[in-house]
Amino acid sequence: MLSADNKRSKIDVQESELGATADIQEAVDAPSRTLPAIEFRDVHLSFDDKKILNGVSFTVRRGETKIILGRSGGGKSTTIRLILGLLKPDSGQILVDGEDITHYSEQEMMRVRQKMGMVFQEGALFDSLSVYENVAYRLHEQKVDEETVEKEVRRMLRFVDLEDAIDKMPSELSGGMRRRVGIARALVGDPTIVMFDEPTAGLDPPTARTICELAIKLRDLEDVSSIFVTHEMNNLEYLSSEYATVNDAGEVIYEMEGEKLCLINTEVIMLRDGQIIFSGKDEQLRKAEDPYITKFIRGK
C-alpha cells in the first residue's frame, strides 16, 4: 500500500518512536485529506447534438491516480478540460478539494488552477520561450524573485532529468523531452493535482516508460492526486503494477507490486461514448467480459 497509507505506516513508526500520536493522527485524519481531490457528480456535456459526457460520476482520492481509458473521441480529454475549467458542463457538479467549481468564473478558476498542473499531449510549450522560461512561466507571472525562480526551475528540471536542456528552445527538443519539460512546467508551484492528457502518445517505448515513471514518482513520493488519460495499455501496466520508493543510497527505484505491497492508490475508469462502462482495479478490468473492454485490451 502506498501514498497515504504508506505515509500512515511511516507515521506509525514515528508514533512508537517519538510518541507524538495526537498531532500525527490529527494530520492524517484532517478534513482536507479525507475530502476527494476531484469529484464528478452526474456530469453531462454536449457539443451541438453530440453527447460528449453522459452522466459521468467518479472521485479521485488524495494521492490516487485515476487512469482514464477509452478510444479517441470518448470524452477523456474533455474530462480534464472540465476539471481545469476550460469547458463548462451542461449539468452536474465538479468539485475540486470539496469546492464546487462548476459555475466558477474565469477569474475564480485562476485561483483554483494554482493548485493544479496539466501535462498536455504534445507538451504545449510556448514556442517563443526557452525551456527555462517555459518552466518558470507560472513563477514569472506571480512576480517571484529571479533567484527563487532559478532554484525552483532547476529543481523541477532535475526531477524530469533535463537540467542540461535549461537554455534550449522548444524547437531544439525531441518529442519526449518536450513532454518532460511540460511535466516540469506543470509541477512548478507543487500542485496537489496533476492531469496528464495522453502524455505518451506517439513516443517510443523507453521514453513512454520514462513519462510513466515520472507519474509513478509523483504519486508515490510526492502524494499528488492525478488523472492519467491514455489509450495505451502499457501505460496502464506500468502505473497499476509498479511503485516508486527510495533505496538506502537515496535513489528512486521502481518495484513491482506483489508480496511486499499491493497498490490501492491506482484505479481505472473506461469511457465509451461519454459514459463510464468500467470503474475499478486493473485486475478487474482484465477479467471484464464486456466485448468492448476485451477488444480494447486485446486489440481484437
Partner: peptide, 18 residues
C-alpha cells in the same frame, strides 16, 4: 491561431494566466 491549435492558449489558462 498557432497557439490555439498547439494548445498553448489552454496551457496559458491552465497555468493561471488570462
Amino acid at each position: 491561431g498557432s497557439m490555439v491549435v498547439s494548445q498553448q492558449i489552454d496551457a496559458m489558462r491552465a497555468l493561471g494566466t488570462d
